[in-house]
Structure formats: C-alpha cells, structure tokens
C-alpha cells in the first residue's frame, strides 16, 4: 500500500451527491430499471470512474445527472444533490442554467455534440454568451485561448472552420474546449475516447485530466475500459444491471477487487505486458434487464454463488478502507 493511503484525509463536502437514484423506462415489454438505487459522491477536484459493460446503466447515470432523461424514461426516486441543490427536482428552465455552465457533458461521438452548420468559433462563443458576461470582443480572444489550451494548432484560423474540417481526435478536442470554456464545476465524459485510436486516446485522456485539474473541477469518466479508468480515476464505481456492485479507491478496486464481477472483468482483459495461455472468462452473458433474476443479478454467472444469492439481493457493505461490495460472499483480501 502506498503512503498516501495511510494518511487520513479530512473529507470535504461532496460537490455531487447521488442518493438512491432510480431511473426507469416504462416500455411495452416491461419496466427497464436502467438505474436502480445508485448512490455515490464526487468530491471537489476528484476523478470518479464509472465502469461496467453495455447495459450496466453507466451512461444513464450521466444522463440523469444532466436531466436528459426523456419519456418513456423517468427519474422515479432519489436525489442528485449538486452544490447543495437537488437537480432531480429542477424544472427545464432552471436546468438549462446548470447545463454547460456548472455541469458539462461530452459524448463518444463528437459530431453529436457539434452543430455541423456553425463554425466552431460560433459554438465556443455561444457558450460564453449564454453563461458569462464577457463582452463580444473578449469572447473571441477567450475562444482562441481555449483552442490553444486543448492543443489545436493555428487556433486563430481554425476558429472559422466547420466541424467536418477536423479529424475525429481534433473534433473531440474541440468538444472538450466547448465544454470547459464556461469553467463548469463538473465534467461528465461518456466514453470520450472509445472511438479514437490509442495514440490519440492517450493524448485526450491527458488533456482532460489537465483541464479538470487546472480548473479545480471534478470529472465523472464513464467507460468500459478498465485500463484507462485505472490510469485516470481516484475512485471507481462498478455497475452491473443498473446497480452498484462495487466502489472504492481506484487502486483498491483494481488490485484487490471484492466483488466477483469486478474480478471477472479484470481477469477477462488480456495483459499486454505478460502473455498467458488462456483468458479467464465470465461464463454466460448479461441477463435481460427486464427479467432480472431475484437476489443478486450476477448470481447466474458467479463462481461463488450459493442459495442465498439467488434469493436475497445483497447490500453494499463498506470495509474499513472505504471499499464497498454488494456481495454475500465477497473476495477477502489476502494481506
């Protein structure tokens, strides 16, 4: 264990506190409990990794925080307390003043966030116009400054370009510039580098970390890439079928997972720094979220499942180190 872990840190009030969030979709095929009783905090300046496979509900947590859940989806219960204000209770008009200004979100495909009909200069300046009282002359300067910060060469001339004139990696840089220009307190990044090549991915992860640190903002990094999250996050939350199965400090979760699903995910990744004969695999596949088994949703695929797992849903139990797992038979750390 490293030194930092031993020093007790006074916990500051969280920037964001999600409490018992339930986001459900009422479809003809049944109720999809995309997020079902999720609670976590994000401290100021913290990078939180939200991981899991497709269907885990990680993106829906991000959408819920941003107030972007449309019918047939609905936030059924829970609180999303951000800087002391419950975002789940805000109407659309007041939510608009939060989005972009205080909380910003970026997506996997930068083209979904960029308007193809406006120059990126327009789009950067629009954010400043909406969310700051900067005079128009200063706005252009600030836009150029921001493009330079995210590593776009010749920002003065690039400002007048349209999104299609940029490559995929450059577009994602532009999106980061737009999302950070109003200096939000919290950035939510949903698979921001999944569509990009490894060399570009590393550049962008570094850029996001730098932007967040420099502005003393927090970051929720939503991704299926455990390796990337282990390099970025301070803490990790693992989701499976809309529920939290494990959370804790990044190093603890990666090195000493307590939930069998987390361990299964980690074991499934081929290690490129050492060769193995065979990968350990999680048997079966993610169940249909409309017909979750009773008890623990992971029980049908779990190597340690017993009778009780198929009957009683396990609670998240926290250990002394702040690591929590929702499991009747958690993996005990070998010290």
């Amino acid at each position: 264990m490293n030194e930092a872990a031993r020093i007790p840190v006074a916990q500051p009030a969280p920037l964001l506190s999600v409490r018992n969030l339930r986001t459900w979709f009422h479809t003809f095929g049944g109720v999809v409990k995309a997020v079902d009783g999720v609670s976590f905090d994000v401290a100021p300046g913290e990078i939180l990794g939200l991981v899991g496979e497709s269907g885990g509900g990680k993106s829906m947590v991000g959408f819920s925080i941003m107030g972007l859940i449309d019918p047939p989806g609905r936030i059924e219960a829970g609180e999303i307390v951000f800087e002391g204000e419950d975002l789940a209770r805000l109407d659309e008009a007041r939510m608009r003043r939060v989005r972009g200004k205080r909380v910003a979100m970026i997506f996997q495909d930068p083209m979904t966030a960029l308007n193809p009909l406006y120059t990126i200069g327009n789009q950067l300046e629009e954010m400043l116009k909406l969310h700051t009282d900067l005079p128009s002359a200063r706005r252009r300067e600030r836009a150029i400054e921001m493009l330079r910060e995210v590593g776009i060469p010749q920002p003065e001339s690039r400002l007048d370009n349209y999104p299609h004139q940029f490559s995929g990696g450059m577009r994602q840089r532009v999106v980061i510039a737009i999302s950070m220009i109003a200096r939000p307190r919290l950035l939510i990044a949903d698979e921001p580098t999944t569509a990009l090549d490894v060399t570009i991915q590393a550049q962008l992860l570094r850029l996001m970390k730098h932007q967040v640190t420099q502005n003393a903002a927090s970051l929720i990094l939503i991704t299926h890439d455990l390796a990337a999250v282990s390099q970025m996050a301070d803490r990790i939350v693992v989701l499976y079928c809309g529920r939290i199965v494990e959370k804790g400090r990044a190093a603890d979760v990666i090195e000493r997972p307590r939930h069998h699903y987390t361990r299964g995910l980690l074991d499934s990744i081929p290690h490129h720094d050492k060769a193995q004969a065979r990968l350990r695999q999680i048997p079966g596949s993610v169940p249909d979220i409309r017909k979750l088994p009773p008890g623990c949703a992971f029980a049908p695929r779990c190597p340690a499942a017993q009778d009780i797992c198929r009957r009683v849903e396990p609670e998240l139990v926290e250990t002394a180190t702040g690591q929590a797992a929702a499991c009747h038979f958690p993996i005990e750390a070998i010290r």
Partner: peptide, 25 residues
Amino acid sequence: QALLAAAPVLGTPLPPAADAIKGEV
C-alpha cells in the same frame, strides 16, 4: 514504441506527455 507506450495498462499511471506521440496520421 510509441504505440506500446500509449496503450493503457491496468494499474499504471498515465504515461507522461514526453513519451507521447504527437500529431495525427
């Protein structure tokens, strides 16, 4: 070398910018 350095490895810190490959294809 650059490709190997850029690939994220579980439980290791983000490689420093000095090792990073610049620009695009």
